[in-house]
Structure formats: structure tokens, C-alpha cells
Design a protein around this nucleic acid. Sequence first.
DNA 1: TTGAAAGCGCTAACAG
DNA 2: CTGTTAGCGCTTTCAA
Lengths: 325, 325
Amino acid sequence: MATIQDIAKHAGVSAATVSRVINNSGYVSTETRQVVEQAIAELNYVPNTHAQNLRRGSTRNLGIITSTLEDPVLARIEPFMQFANEANYTTTLFNTYNDPNRELETLDRLKAKELDGIFLIYRTNDWSKIEPYTQFGPIVTLHNIEDLDLNIQSVYIDHYSGYKMILEDLWENGARSFINVLGSRTGINTKRRIKAYLDFCEEHQIEPHDFEPFLGIGGIEGGYHAVELIDALEEKPDAVLAHSDEIASAIVSQYHKRGVRMPEDISVVGFDNLDISHLMDFTTVDYSIHEQGKNACRLLLNELGAGAYELAPLNFQLIKRNTTK
Amino acid sequence: MATIQDIAKHAGVSAATVSRVINNSGYVSTETRQVVEQAIAELNYVPNTHAQNLRRGSTRNLGIITSTLEDPVLARIEPFMQFANEANYTTTLFNTYNDPNRELETLDRLKAKELDGIFLIYRTNDWSKIEPYTQFGPIVTLHNIEDLDLNIQSVYIDHYSGYKMILEDLWENGARSFINVLGSRTGINTKRRIKAYLDFCEEHQIEPHDFEPFLGIGGIEGGYHAVELIDALEEKPDAVLAHSDEIASAIVSQYHKRGVRMPEDISVVGFDNLDISHLMDFTTVDYSIHEQGKNACRLLLNELGAGAYELAPLNFQLIKRNTTK
DNA sequence: TTGAAAGCGCTAACAG
DNA sequence: CTGTTAGCGCTTTCAA
């Protein structure tokens, strides 16, 4: 491979001049520039990225860390990548498969200057272990960190009002008993959903249902499992609220197979407004998940001084389809 | 950030020795090793990747190039990434959005030593433009390149027999007229499917249908469009064969909405056996798409001398569900 | 078993 | 406007 020296020789100039041409920095006469550009073209030269990065002390590469690659995660990753690409940043995706060590190793890449910043979608380590890394580069997350005094930005969105929105709509259409299919026991989203549900119950003077065993449910298999749990219930609920479209799709799928009619026999609602909700025609909540991914990137680039992007507002919107009245 | 020199000083040894410890190369006495390891731990040292890469002339990073991020593509990317990760390789995903220049720029990263090898899922440039890059690193693709004399490996799988399998099964169950919803007009998969269909027609002495306007159909929107095209037909077919589960999901979705019963009114078959086919309960063909992604990685690592992996065999299997008799 | 020294390819002062 | 020079942080001969 040709190096900058080869180009310099070929063009009869110094390496510094070639560098100036490549980077469009400093003064270069039009003639010299042309000669250099021709040499570059002739020798088919591409600068060695490692040398550039070593010299500059930065990459134009953002890391994306997740613990799973399910649809709702992908729905954030894609717009993030696209936005980064447009800003001329590269992205590297790391799946930790929920292994805390892998997560730490990946954060080390920030130290190793391999990554300029990180979009930490799902974390597995304590914040106290993660935060020290911010001295090596910005970190943005999907988690809620409002209460914590951390140097980490977040694109978290409080599910409370979105969830309440669903409940109220179901109520208006006659539903009186509900099952909340919830995710991570410790997650903030679960807490906020529970809060919304409890508040709702109080306002409408109804008895809340037991959250167990509907906690910690995830993935398509989780959705199938939820259906079995509901089947085992003595009193069937009027409506099932899934915490994601992925779960909802599995539930809807099972009901279709069993000939359970929606919304006549039971209502089902998802969350996220992914393609699947459209395809399977079930009610869900949209909150610009796409823009959320982009916002993560905007935040990161702003912190890196690579732009001054305004964040897009994220609003809840109920998307009514055929699984609710 | 601490550098190798800092560690050397701290441990009272030379940088060379630290390097030996880091890389587990050459001779280091147990004592020295311990002292160095302690220094590394104390100073929280992580080697600068760019310096390493510059020195070594290689990264442990594989590029994945695609022109779109739809489900069938993701279904290959995920296992590829996982396999690479396990072999201690990093992956970087590039979406060209069908822009030939972006594709070339990404291939340039091979030259720039930024990528050790490339999984070129979908290409947009001519092979003649792509092949020269193989001198800078191995390229593996999903495209068929059997006929061409290229230095590019492929995990292509001929759809002929898989497609024939579907047709025969439909025939046995009474279907006599078909619509083939086909992809890229120039793609080999389309050609092989057409060949399978024409052979099938000849064997069963039936008249093939016009391929137009069912060519070049892709994405969910494409599936919706296909349904409209079929509606406009004078004679309704007994069965619709989609070239991917994505297309099939859109078709099935539309039919559900319109109250068209499957398989009573019409049969629908997909291809790929993605999650969605299971969720929406439609018949499809499995051919270890997951292993195909891994094979791509195996091939790449073999070429890089980073292993001697055996390829997994890819076989067709008809997965019958409720959209066919 | 260890250290000295050279150099991977590039950029950025600085001097002219 | 252009060239000289130093050095980013690491690995790898070579010599001791």
C-alpha cells in the first residue's frame, strides 16, 4: 500500500503538503493541490486510519452497547447508526449478552481511544462502575438516571403517561379488569407502569391485580408464557397490556391460534409501534422510538463538540387497531 | 491516560517487557510479570488500540456491508456478529443505502487497514469494481458468484430446490394456479425461482403465469402492493409464493384485514423462517439462515488464518403452518 | 530473560 | 504557501 511518503515523492512535494490536501487544512496552492490529487488517484492511495487516529487521539467511531438484539433495541440502533453515518461517524455494535465483564471490556475501548463515545442501551453493571468511564468519553443511555447525580446523559422517556393513556382508553371502551405484563422487576419502566396502573385503579375505584407472576417477562417466549399464565387465571381479564410490541405480538399470535377473538373476547395492547404491530394489526403506543435513537446520537455528538443538534421531542400517541374496542 | 511507558517506569522495567506481558509473547520471568501486571492494574492501563494496530498492520475488525437493514438481512448479521465476537473480532456495520459510492468508500477501509475482511451482504457495484479490493483483505458475499472467476467467497445457496419443494407441496394439496412474487429482476435468486417454477409447470403440464408485474417487489410496502396486484387479476390464484417472509408477512397481514381466509380462499407461503412467520403462523421454508451468517464469518476467519472452521451444511426444510393446506 | 532503538504512517508546530 | 522535524503509543528485531 502506498503511504503518504510515496504520494509526496510522486508529486514532488513534502508529506506535510499531502496531509494538507487530504485534510483540507492550511494553505495549498491550486496547482500543488492538483498535482497531489493526481498522485493520490494514480497510486490509489487511502490514508491509514490507524496512523491518523493515533496522531489525532480520536476516532470517529461511536460504540453501541446492548445486552440483547431484540426488535425494540434494533428500533433504536438503526436510526442511531443512520444519524451517525450522516455526521460521518462510524458505529460499532457490541452485544454483551448480559455479561458484566464484556460490558466493562467494551467500556475500556473508550479508554483505548477506540471509541469516541458510547450509546449504552442496556447496562448490566452498577452505575458506580460505569460512571468513571465518562472521563474518557461521553456516554448516553436509554435508562433513567434522573435521580442519580451522574455525568451521563439519557434519552429516557417516562412511560407513566403513555401507560395511563392506554388504561383510560380501555376503560372508556368498557374494560374493567386488566393484566399488566411487565418487564424487568427492578427497571424504572416497570415501576412507572405500576404507578400508573395503581393511580388509575384508585381513580376508578377498582382493585388492582397481583403483579406476580406477570413480572420479569421478556422476549417472544415470554409472551407465550404470559398467555399460559392468563389461561390459568380463574377470572379472565378484559384486557392485557404488554410492555412491548414484541411481547404483544407473541400474545396476539397465541390468541389467534387458539381462536380467541380480539377485541371481543379480550383486548391486547402493545407498546413501541414497531412494524410488527402494524402487520399484526394490534393497538399500541407510539413515542417516536426512532427519534429516540437519533436523540441519543445527537446528544453524543453535541458532547463531542461535533455539532449542536436540537433534540426532537418525544410524545406519546395511542395507535388504535383491531385488538381493542 | 497511562501509556506503556508509564507502566514501564512504574514497574521499573522497559516498555518492551510490558509489551511482552500484555501480549503474552516472548520470555518474561514470573516475578517481572507480576510486577508489571500490578502496575497495569494500579494505573488502570489499557493499551491504545490505534498504536497497536498501526504497528501490527491489522485490526481485529470485520466489516459488514449491506444496502438495507431489513429483517432477512439482520437475520444473517446477528449470527455473524456473534460468531465474530466469540473469535475475539469486532464488527462494524455499514449501510450503503444503495449508494455505490458509499459502498466503494467502505471497501476503501480495507485498504486503510481499518477492516481485516468484509462480509458484503448486498452489493451495488459491479464485481469488476469490487474484486480489486480482495488484494487488501478477504471478501465474502451472499450473492452467487459461481459462474464468475472471482477471488471472492460466497455463502450463496441456490433457491431452486427449496422453491420446487414448496410448489410440489402446494400441488399435492390441490393448488393448480400460482403467483410468484419475485424480487430483484436481475438477481440470481429470482432467476432460479423462475427456473424452478417453469420446470414445475412443464412437469405438471400447466401454463405459467406472467411474471410481470410481480417482479422487483421488496419490503413490507411491496407486499401490500402485491396484494393489490393480485386483487386486480381476473383469475385469482390458488397460492401466492413470496420470496421472503417479510413480503409474506405483509401479504398475510393484508388478507387478514380483508377477511380473506387462508388457506381456504388462498394459500400463502414465505421464505426464510424468520420469527415473524412463526408469529403470524404462515408456511415458509427454512434453510438455516442463521448458520449462513455464521458460515460467512467462518469463511472470513479461515481466509485470515484466524481459524480452520468447518462450514455448516445448509438444507431446505418446508415448515408447514396455517396458510397452506 | 531483559533493554535499546527503530519505525509503523500520519499530523501539527514551527520556520522559512 | 511549503518543508523540516518531532512524536502519537506500540511491537519487534537485535544485542546483551
